[in-house]
């Protein structure tokens, strides 16, 4: 296992380099000269050249890239174009909120997804199975920003149960987590159901029953672990969508997280912040996938020993 993790960490190096090149190009592929934007449309050429020099934009591309890389490793992403504060000062207070939102939503998705999937599989074709699967289909089909707006409309404005915006109190966390986690829960539920149904018809489940163990043990000890193997893959793939979802969810609920920072910075053409956020989100995604792969191997011993 340890060698596997080390090998996977080494494999991450080219991935991360690729990510950094993409993020770096982002800046240079976007139309418009950042120096020009900074200086204003009517600035004299000398000012623009001075800004270019300050930002290193007059250097050849590869030098600029290596500078960017060197700075990024030290979490030095330059300064915001709007307020000249270091980019990292914008990100630091917000990154925790976004990570918390993503983690709570993932936990929500996994918890409800598994429960619904197992109930549906165990009682297949029953009334509860059919209704749960219809609910899951709804959850899957609703865009999360729309769900967020509906929740605010109903639970905040009509019933007044939860505050419509902000982050920190438990009451403020509930609705954003539901908004962001519902689609994932629905996918996990459907995946768990079909995976469980497939596993339940396997020979080794019959063997377990022939051994005289209770149905509860058959489901949770024999079937679930095998059924989870494909589900884990889905959870990993979902996480990318979840990070993208934070952007929308934070905007809907006016949460001061990284997602909202990205949106605001894009509108303000504050490229250094956008660049830094995209890079950080990409790195988080890469590491989450590593965790998923490790979990997968813990569940599926066969891969580990091959």
């Amino acid at each position: 296992m340890t060698t596997y993790i080390i090998r996977r960490l080494l494999q991450l190096i080219p991935v991360l380099i690729g990510v950094s090149i993409l993020v770096f190009s982002l800046m240079h592929l976007t139309p418009g000269n950042p120096a020009l934007i900074l200086a204003g449309e009517h600035a004299p050429p000398e000012t623009i050249r001075a800004i270019e020099k300050r930002l290193g934009l007059d250097q050849p591309l590869h030098i600029q890239y290596f500078d960017f890389l060197k700075n990024a490793v030290q979490l030095e992403f330059g300064t915001s174009m709007r307020d000249r504060l270091p980019v990292i000062d914008h990100i630091k207070p917000r990154i925790g909120t976004t990570i918390a939102l993503a983690i709570y939503s993932t936990i929500f998705s996994i918890f409800f997804g598994l429960i619904i999937g197992i109930i549906s599989a165990v009682r297949k074709y029953s009334f509860s199975d059919i209704s749960l699967m219809i609910i899951a289909l709804f959850g899957l089909s609703m865009p999360n920003f729309w769900l967020g707006i509906i929740l605010i409309q109903f639970f905040s404005l009509k019933l007044g149960w939860f505050p419509p915006s902000g982050w920190g109190e438990l009451s403020q966390i509930v609705m954003p987590v539901i908004t962001l986690g519902t689609a994932g829960a629905a996918i996990i539920a459907r995946m768990t159901r079909s995976s469980m149904l497939e596993v339940i018809s396997q020979d080794y489940i019959r063997t377990a029953r022939a051994k005289g163990v209770s149905e509860r043990i058959v489901i949770y000890r024999h079937a679930l672990k095998n059924a989870l193997i494909p589900v884990v893959t889905i959870v990993g793939l979902q996480f990318g969508g979840l990070l993208a979802g934070t952007v929308l969810t934070e905007s809907v609920f006016a949460i001061n997280g990284m997602g909202k920072l990205v949106v605001d910075s894009i509108t303000a053409r504050d490229f250094p912040i956008v660049q830094a956020c995209v890079l950080i989100i990409a790195v988080i995604f890469v590491f989450v996938n590593l965790i998923v792969d490790i979990t997968y191997r813990v569940l599926n011993k066969r891969i580990e020993l091959d």
């Binding site: 396997q202 020979d203 080794y204 019959r206 063997t207 377990a208 029953r209 022939a210 051994k211 005289g212 163990v213 209770s214 149905e215 024999h222 672990k225 095998n226 569940l299 599926n300 011993k301 066969r302």
Partner: peptide, 28 residues
């Protein structure tokens, strides 16, 4: 009852199956 049957299965009456390749739980 189901419960009484479970006490018999694997205890008083056992069964082995045709496919040893698939009859054992791969994750245990």
């Amino acid at each position: 009852s189901d419960k009484e049957m479970r006490k018999i299965r694997g205890n008083q009456i056992s069964m082995i199956f045709q496919e040893p390749m698939t009859s054992l739980n791969p994750t245990q």
